[in-house]
Structure formats: structure tokens, C-alpha cells
Amino acid sequence: MKKVTTALAGSLVALAASAGASQALTLYCSAQEEWCQIMARSFEEATGIDVDMTRKSSGETFAQVKAEEANPKGDVWWGGTGDPHLQAAEEGLTEEYVSPMREQLHDWSIAQAESAGNQTIGIYSGALGYGYNNDLLAANNLPEPACWKDLLKPEYKGHIQMANPNSSGTAYTTLATMVQMFGEEEGFQYMKDLHANINQYTKSGSAPIKAAGLGETTVGIVFMHDAVAQVEAGFPITVVAPCEGTGYEIGSMSIIKGARNMDEAKQFYDWALSAEAQNLALEVDAFQVPSNKGAQTSDKAPDLSSIKLIDYDFTKYGSSDERKRLLQKWDEEVSTLPQ
């Protein structure tokens, strides 16, 4: 009997066969720890399927999925910024799937999925912005910034921190946003002027706002929900939605190609798109905007309807060719300038 099951599993290792009766799912999670935990446990309660959850940042998960390509160990990859998901789709590491839950989703989520050949889907979004440390701003007698262009003023010299677009998806989103908002020429001019005021390009995307929280920089350019999390943790931070409008990220979910528990993976996928599952974010202080139209957004979260969002082109700026070109240009024209 068992032979049949093993043969059915095709090219997969027979671990699944020995797990046999009890269903299981291996979840790679790239959101914050609590959110990952509550997603895993709630899915277990809802379906009785055992979830093995591992939390890693989205870049680390991408590296792992890629390394495991020949013999995938994960089933679903949930959470984390969209770029690595899109990259995984482009490299054929993830599985195409059209969920019946689609009709309940916002357009931006479906648009992103279609741009990636249905290999990934948006589960939440978060707008780009910045936050500043109230105490430091006052101590240095600086005016309160409200727009992107405010950050170019000479009095902010040495007060602004952002991540390095070579290492962080957040910073790449910033670069791509400026290019889309102001045009390539002017966008790069903006980055060059901003460069003069930057005190440090951090490696990780959320580091600038953490530094602002600890009083190590005045302004940090990050996703706004990361800044809100700092406020909620008790740090003296003010969150700014820039007046010119801004770009955004789409946190995504993908099924890993060759998943051992494909049925369970799809079950999780459908469940994670439901309003009920997305409402779990409220319980763990996650301030992103959910992709299900029926799901609630935390009242502390930045209100996306009051923020001018640009029409972010995920197909173009998510492709690896365009990314390489922009990063190289940034490397050559911006990062080499004196500060």
C-alpha cells in the first residue's frame, strides 16, 4: 500500500509518506514573530493540520528557497516584502495558483499577482514614509518636515538615515518611488541631494527608524508601519506621510514549487486570504493594510486613503533587469558623491 503513496509523491522524498495520516504543513514566515505564531496556531485550530513554522527575514527565506531548489523543504512562504517573492517567481521557484478567494481582494493585490504570472499574491501593503525623533528634532532646533523635498534642506545635514538600496528592499522601493514620482532624471537628482544629508546608509531596511527610536539619528526613511511600531513600542517618534505622495510595498505569499504538502499549502493559501485570517494582524500590532476588502485595518495604522499613493509599477520595477540597472546607476552616480 505504502508503495503506492510513495510513487504518487513523485519526485519527493517519502517523509510525507511516513507522516501519512496526520496532515502537515511547513510554513516559511517572513513577518514579525508574533504574527507568524498566531497565523500558524490559528490555521492549526481552523483545520487540524499541523504547522511547522520557521521565521526568517524575506531575504533569508529567498536565499533558503533558492538553495533548496533541488529538494524543496518548505510548502508555503507567507509574508515579507514583495520583491523577493517576485524574484522567486521570475526564477521559477514558486508555483502558479489562482485562489477562489481572489474576488474578495483589493485590486492592487490582484494586479501584483497577475504581473507575476499568479505565482505570488499580495496579503498586505504598507506605504513608504519616514519618522523623526521628537526629542532630537527639538534639541537641534529643526523644523518639522512634512514632504520628501523638506529632507533636502541643508539644516538636515547629517540627520537623515536610510538603508542602502543594494542591501535592502525598503531602500530600493524608495529609489524606485522617486524615479516613478519625479521621473528618472529628477528622481536621481533627488537621491543625490538627499545623499548630502544622509549620515549613514544602513544595511537592513528597518534599521533607520530603530536608530531614530534610540536617538541615534533624527530622521529615518522607512515603511510607515515600521515607524508606527516604534511609536507603539514607546519611542518618541512622529510618523510622516510625505505630502508629494509616496510608493508602497506589497507583502506577499507564494507556494513553493515542488511543495511536499501541496494540498495543505493551497488550503493555507486560501485561508490566509480570508478576512478572518487577515484580521489576526490586529491582535499582534501589525499596522499594514490587509489585502482582503472585508478585513479590518488597525486604527493606529497609517490611513492609506488619506495618503497619496503613486501608481507603483510592480511589473517594471520588480523585474531583476530594471532593478540591476537602477542599483548600478545609484552605485555609480549617487553613492560615490562626497557628503
Binding site: P84, N166, S168
Partner: peptide, 23 residues
């Protein structure tokens, strides 16, 4: 990673070449 500022060293460059936006 924590204290480097703009002083790039090989180990962090390596880490972000693998997990960063460059892939």
C-alpha cells in the same frame, strides 16, 4: 552590522549579497 556606519567590511557585504536586494 550594528556599529559599522558607512564603514563597509567583507562579512556584511557578503551577507547582503546573499540576502539583500541584489540576489
Amino acid at each position: 552590522l550594528v556599529l559599522g556606519g558607512n564603514f563597509d567590511v567583507l562579512s556584511t557585504e557578503i551577507f547582503f549579497a546573499i540576502v539583500g536586494a541584489q540576489y
